[in-house]
Design a protein around this nucleic acid. Structure first.
Length: 852
RNA sequence: GCGGAAGUGGCGGAACUGGCAGACGCGCAGGACUUAGGAUCCUGUGGCCGAAAGGCCGUGGGGGUUCAACUCCCUCCUUCCGCACCA
């Protein structure tokens, strides 16, 4: 029999001895620890000024359908961080709740003939069960659900505060209307410009009164504060937010309309310096002046038809960008206030009513869109900015607009000739203001936040309309305005609440007369814009939260969620924070210090979703492998910010690994426990022991680094796997090292695993003889003296190619290293007969000898 | 069109500040133990040539800087994401 065979048989006997203990039963272990955690209130955190706090939060889920591994990835990352921070001594706030209002519940309810509340509560129960099954370290005392009056009354309260300050206001605005459903559609329900349920029916624009929040009042601050977030937020998100806010400096200029006394067309431009090159004024099809302009023109009827057609066209957002430029002459002229020149007024499909003033001055020589438009309709092109370098431009020869405004000087621009565009922009805006036909202006792409939804399953907007008093806010002491439960949902008509007379008819809070309640509900983004404050003080029934409590916990140290919320949710949350600050409720400007956007979990190349049928259910996973395996796999399979392609085979590797860890620990548990209290000292350690300790502490060093800086948990897992491989290679352990050494190795291993596979971590910790759970354990300190290498492997290169590897004592001098490399036969061979032209020595790493 | 991210074995991925490309895991191949194995353990596993020693090639393509490039520079290609006629 070979030696290896003997070894194998011996190990097998050993394993058989321990057979009863060597079966890793994740179901039993996980249930055991979850029960224990619950009993001890392990994850409850309360204000404690004596300890440093850490608020880690995962975006609250919308409870629909089943929880899959895509959800779990988010929470696993957050949980690993929460547990790590606890081990580091932080007072960790880690809550969970439910984004429970929303359209899908309403639709599901209509489809199934049940109440949205029933549907939602069922889903919440299921989501919560799965979260518990995964053992996430949430403080469940703080659980919130946005569809409960205890929560949404504060939405209403915030709304009323905003109303008082003029931040909430009402105006007529367009909504999407499906004529077949006879209902308002949410933007998400508009597919290719058509109703999602009637794909052949174009959505119509309908104007109704709606509530808005003045986010634009904070536009500048929302933009500027992004700079403060640079250290903690992904660039991608900052960029998206900057683009969304879309600050643009320019000028507003009024053009008088010929033949319509007193009427002017306002134009916004960032290039007022090119105004002498304007050859037309172009209006958006839905411009408010359109009716007056067309009235009485020779082409009135056909032109009105054209406008109507363009308005219909502009619904299809899909191909707006690529659509051919269309337009026509209205028959009227505007006067360039600078030059006095008469410019034809056109209508153009590429001018947006929603941006700027809904009208542009058309400067074909210096704007590519205007250029294309004028080429198509044979409008004149006039160059008014010439490049500083190179050939002068001639209109007839241009094939695209010259819009590089940094390098040019003005021509054919009256008194401004010779100026740089930058100087002219300033001078001309001042001139416009002095002469009363314009001024410098900054505009934003950001629009006010429309929060009215003609839906049932949301927070009622707390106002009423009285014939005598007009709009009357619901007084605070009448909050909450409770969402009635017995409203018939048909998916037809306007706001479902309007069909409930018991809800609608109310006594005016001012005069006591007959009034009608507002029947729209709030956008659910309202719910999620401040929920993380509520967690801090979840059961306060006299205020949304106690400012003192919030002061302790805020800002959120780490927020974790999907990139899908990069713009709206986060922007609204930041807006809310600023409003709260101005209300004196909080003392910070930004609610979230650090943001992490995790990647998606894909199966078959696309994100998991029920409709695609590619979900891996979280509960199934816990049932099959145990949740620790599921957690470990989601951390191991990819770095957390990248998308993760789910692989049913690959996860078995993680299962095997945890099994192996469990068996190794149980095999040696009794032996190792015997060494409790004894230190593994280096002085008396054998080479094998030193190697093991070194590997352990080097692993600890790098895993700690992963948790502190990079969050590359995939490499952490890999490192721990390597360590276990090393331990396995050192078998039979009892012959190769003393129990105190093994104990140190095992303890560190258990502690490192704890944030990622917490149930097994606890179990292993207990196996090592610790009576108290990991709640009392600290993250181990890495000992540099144990990780220090005495010997290092040096790569010896000749002309940049590896020719040999030599193991030498650490810390050798450059010259000594060079000599050692030179002495290696394989190196010597390569150098033989050639001239050494250069030698590069990197201490403890490499020697490269360049020869000719 | 603009902005951003990324491209490494059969697959997921590693390589920290320019210093051994492919750690770790999956898969695959061979073996051990087995009545059996979809359990467990061991060995091998980028490609080509070679019995081996070893050699050559290799990180999307091309070029460059360097003793040394997945890493830096230029250029092109591809994929994904966001914005999309923003005046």
């Amino acid at each position: 029999m070979t030696q290896r065979k003997e070894k194998g048989q011996k190990r097998k006997r050993e394993m058989a001895e321990q057979e009863l203990q060597t079966i890793y039963d994740p179901q039993a272990i996980e249930a055991k620890w979850q029960k224990r955690w619950e009993e001890t209130g392990e994850f409850h955190a309360d204000v404690d000024p004596a300890r440093p706090k850490y608020y880690v939060l995962e975006m609250l889920p919308y409870p629909s359908g089943t929880m899959h591994m895509g959800h779990m990835r988010n929470y696993t990352i957050g949980d690993a961080v929460a547990r790590y921070k606890r081990m580091r001594g932080f007072n960790v706030l880690h809550p969970m709740g439910w984004d429970a209002f929303g359209l899908p519940a309403e639709n599901a309810a209509i489809q199934r003939g049940i109440h949205p509340r029933e549907w939602t509560l069922t889903n919440i129960a299921s989501f919560k069960r799965v979260c518990r099954r995964f053992g996430f370290s949430y403080d469940w005392r703080r659980e919130i659900s946005t569809c409960e009056p205890e929560y949404y009354r504060w939405n209403q309260w915030f709304f009323l505060r905003m109303l008082e300050r003029g931040i909430a206001y009402r105006k007529r605005s367009r909504v999407n209307w499906c004529p077949k459903c006879a209902t308002v559609l949410a933007n998400e329900q508009v597919v290719n410009g058509c109703c999602w349920r009637h794909e052949d029916t174009p959505v119509e624009a309908k104007e109704i009164e709606q509530w808005f929040l003045r986010t634009t009042q904070y536009a500048d601050e929302l933009l500027d504060c992004l700079n403060k977030l640079e250290a903690g937020w992904p660039d991608r998100v900052l960029t998206m937010q900057r683009n969304w806010i879309g600050k643009s400096r320019g000028a507003r200029v009024r053009f008088a309309v010929e033949g319509l006394s007193g009427e002017t067309i306002e134009v916004f431009t960032t290039r007022i310096d090119t105004i002498y090159g304007a050859t037309a004024v172009i209006l958006a099809p839905s411009h408010t002046l359109m009716g007056k302009l067309l009235e009485g023109s020779s082409q009135q009827a056909p032109n009105e038809e054209r406008v109507a057609q363009m308005r219909r066209m502009s619904v299809k957002m899909e191909d707006i960008a690529t659509a051919e430029k269309e337009g026509f002459f209205t028959g009227r002229y505007a006067v360039n206030p600078f030059s006095g020149e008469k410019l034809p007024i056109w209508v153009g499909n590429f001018v947006l009513m929603e941006y700027g003033t809904g009208a542009v001055m058309c400067v074909p020589a210096h704007d590519q869109r205007d250029f294309e438009f004028c080429k198509k309709y044979k409008l004149p092109i006039r160059v008014v900015v010439q490049p500083l370098a190179g050939e002068p431009l001639f209109a007839e020869m241009m094939d695209h607009a010259f819009d590089e405004h940094m390098e040019g000087k003005l021509v054919e621009s009256g008194p401004y000739n010779g100026m740089s565009p930058a100087a002219a922009i300033e001078k001309m805006a001042a001139e416009a203001e002095a002469r009363g036909f314009g001024q410098a202006e900054t505009i934003f792409r950001l629009k006010d936040w429309g929060i009215s939804r003609q839906r049932y399953w949301g927070t009622p907007i707390p106002v009423m309309y009285c014939e005598q008093c007009g709009m009357v806010p619901v007084p605070d002491d009448q909050l909450p305005v409770v969402l009635p439960s017995n409203v018939k949902l048909t998916g037809q008509g306007q706001s479902p609440l309007a069909s409930d007379p018991a809800f609608v008819n109310v006594k005016c809070a001012k005069c006591g007369g007959a009034a009608r309640r507002e029947t729209d509900t709030m956008d659910t983004f309202m719910d999620s814009s401040w929920y993380f404050y509520r967690y801090a003080d979840a059961h306060n029934d006299s205020a949304p939260f106690d400012p003192a409590v919030v002061r302790y916990w805020f800002p959120i140290d780490q927020y974790i969620g999907g990139i899908v919320h990069a713009i709206l949710h986060l922007l609204y949350s930041r807006f809310f924070c600023k409003v709260m600050r101005d209300l004196g409720l909080v003392n910070h400007d930004e609610p979230i210090a650090r943001l992490f956007t995790q990647g998606l979990v894909l199966k078959g190349g696309t994100a998991m979703s029920k409709s695609k049928g590619n979900v891996v259910g979280a509960e199934d996973m816990a049932q099959k492998f145990g949740c620790d395996t599921g957690r470990l796999y989601t951390l191991f399979a990819a770095p957390p910010e990248k998308d993760l392609e789910w692989n049913d085979q690959s996860i078995e590797g993680c299962s095997r690994f945890l099994n192996r860890v469990f068996r190794t620990f149980s095999r040696h548990a009794v032996w190792v426990r015997g060494a409790a209290g004894r230190k593994a000292d280096l002085a008396s350690a054998t080479e094998k022991e030193k190697a093991l300790l070194r590997k352990t502490h080097e692993t600890l060093r790098r895993v700690t680094q992963d948790f502190e800086a990079r969050w590359h948990f995939n490499t952490s897992v890999a490192l721990i796997m390597e360590l276990m491989n090393e331990v396995q290679a050192a078998e039979p352990l009892r012959e190769n090292c003393r129990p105190e050494v093994a104990r140190e190795v095992f303890e560190i291993t258990a502690l490192m695993l704890a944030p990622m596979a917490p149930h097994l971590g606890e179990e292993l910790w207990e196996m090592l003889g610790h009576g108290e759970g990991l709640g009392k354990a600290n993250w181990p300190a890495y000992k540099p003296e144990l990780a220090a290498e005495e010997q290092v492997e040096i790569v010896a290169q000749v002309n940049g190619r590896v020719r040999a590897k030599l193991v030498v004592e650490a810390g050798l001098s450059e010259e000594e290293l060079y000599q050692r490399a030179l002495a290696h036969p394989r190196v010597a061979d390569q150098i033989d007969g050639k001239r050494v032209v250069k030698k590069i020595v990197v201490p403890n790493k490499l020697v490269n000898i360049v020869v000719k």
